[in-house]
Design a protein around this nucleic acid. Structure first.
Lengths: 159, 159
DNA sequence: GCTGAAAATTATGCATT
DNA sequence: AATGCATAATTTTCAGC
């Protein structure tokens, strides 16, 4: 990947879009002292290159999904893909990653209350063939999420 | 929270914005068979209520940050806030959450190679007063992130 | 809370450097 | 890759329902 390199102008534009993805190119241009067309070209290039995407993040807490838990699973190798598909089909699953071993999966789930979480741990997960719950941890508070991540400013260099 | 409730129209608009946060209100209106003004009003309401935010997500892999690790920490209680501030100031830290115990923190970090991760585990983290590394796990692949999360459709009801 | 119409702003296509 | 210009599309403002 990384076919194109981006400079500090791109970095500033990304920061503006991070604050508000719908900010008009004209407004960004005024703020950064650039030409509107330049800003639009840059945004198009960034998005088309796949370096960033402009999206909408729903706040789980606003909708009452205040319970977050990390669950660690062991998965029978032969049924791995079926398990992954089953898990991704569950709306409560907000994160799914492979662990280090080929058998390890970790997921993050969101629920409205502890009863839903208990039900999920006791009934929903065990009902998926090939899944074994190794453990879980409640996550009381999240202070930063991946969507806030940016490469360090040094990555954006003048050519 | 949850002062307002949203309906299926809001749900559809959120899905459109998820695909492209810069999609024009006019285009969304055409696609969903709504009035442009209605779409803009809905978007404003959603964002002002804090139910969702329109933002830009940078792809770590594009910038070469291909190493992801989850690190589990134990933190001396008296220095908790200082530790959190120190961790949040580190760009590599893409996720930070409290664990179940008052002393537990878990973080996710992004690096370009294993050497940077080793350096972080061996030198950077131990240099923060009050931090003890309990363990870590490499995350080979992430299949879903929180930014893709949506409440189940049933949450969006007609009034 | 939805919609209409005019005015202001912004985006697009094409062309030039 | 950046920008100027003309045209098209969109958003905003102010209103009524």
């Amino acid at each position: 990947m990384q076919r194109y390199s981006f400079d500090t102008v791109d970095y500033q534009i990304l920061q503006e879009l991070k604050a508000d993805a719908r900010k008009s190119a004209a407004e960004i241009a005024r703020k950064l002292g650039l030409n509107e067309r330049t800003v639009r070209n840059r945004i198009d290039r960034i998005v088309e290159a796949g370096a960033a995407r402009l999206t909408c993040i729903v706040d789980p807490a606003y909708f009452g999904y205040v319970i977050t838990a990390d669950i660690f699973l062991e998965v029978d190798y032969e049924q791995e893909q079926a398990v992954i598909n089953a898990l991704l089909a569950i709306p409560a699953v907000s994160y799914l990653a492979f662990g280090q071993g080929t058998q390890d999966l970790s997921i993050e789930v969101r629920f409205k209350n502890n009863e839903q979480l208990r039900e999920f741990l006791r009934s929903v997960l065990p009902a998926i063939p090939g899944v074994h719950v190794k453990g879980y941890a409640l996550v009381p508070r999240i202070l930063r999420n991946i969507d806030e991540w940016m490469p360090p400013a040094e990555e954006f260099i003048e050519e």
